[in-house]
Computed example of a mutant assay.
Amino acid sequence: MYVCVCYAVPDSEIRACIARGARTVEEVGDACDAGTGCGSCLDRIDVFLAAAHAPSSIAGLPKSA
């Protein structure tokens, strides 16, 4: 699925940019141009960033009972 239509950037590329260390919408744009055109995808990019950097709700649970 394309996240940025202006530059035909798919979600897999957004995820790859984040995996390589992008932590802001601007850093994603610098890495792959997503969000640097019309700007309509900025909210979608931010969702990918939040999901990647938000702590998991199960992270603090014990590994075994």
Rank of each mutant, 00 (worst) to 15 (best):
40 S>Y: 08
13 E>R: 10
31 A>F: 09
31 A>S: 11
55 P>A: 05
25 V>N: 07
46 D>A: 10
47 V>L: 15
54 A>Y: 04
21 G>M: 05
41 C>W: 03
42 L>D: 09
34 A>N: 01
28 V>A: 03
52 A>V: 04
17 C>D: 13
54 A>P: 08
23 R>Q: 14
51 A>Q: 12
51 A>W: 03
38 C>H: 05
19 A>C: 01
31 A>H: 01
48 F>W: 06
23 R>S: 15
36 T>V: 05
48 F>V: 10
13 E>H: 01
46 D>Q: 12
24 T>W: 14
42 L>H: 13
37 G>R: 02
55 P>V: 09
30 D>V: 06
20 R>Q: 13
30 D>L: 11
14 I>N: 02
33 D>C: 14
46 D>N: 15
20 R>E: 14
18 I>T: 02
30 D>C: 06
10 P>V: 10
50 A>Q: 13
17 C>Y: 01
31 A>Y: 14
38 C>K: 08
13 E>C: 04
11 D>F: 02
54 A>C: 15
20 R>V: 07
11 D>Q: 14
30 D>E: 06
11 D>T: 06
55 P>I: 02
40 S>I: 12
35 G>A: 13
32 C>M: 08
39 G>I: 11
55 P>S: 07
51 A>K: 06
23 R>A: 14
41 C>H: 00
19 A>T: 11
45 I>R: 03
27 E>K: 15
27 E>S: 07
55 P>R: 12
28 V>T: 07
43 D>L: 05
44 R>S: 06
9 V>L: 04
31 A>G: 11
28 V>C: 06
50 A>Y: 13
55 P>D: 07
19 A>D: 12
47 V>Y: 01
28 V>S: 00
13 E>I: 13
15 R>W: 02
47 V>K: 15
49 L>W: 00
17 C>E: 11
14 I>L: 10
12 S>W: 13
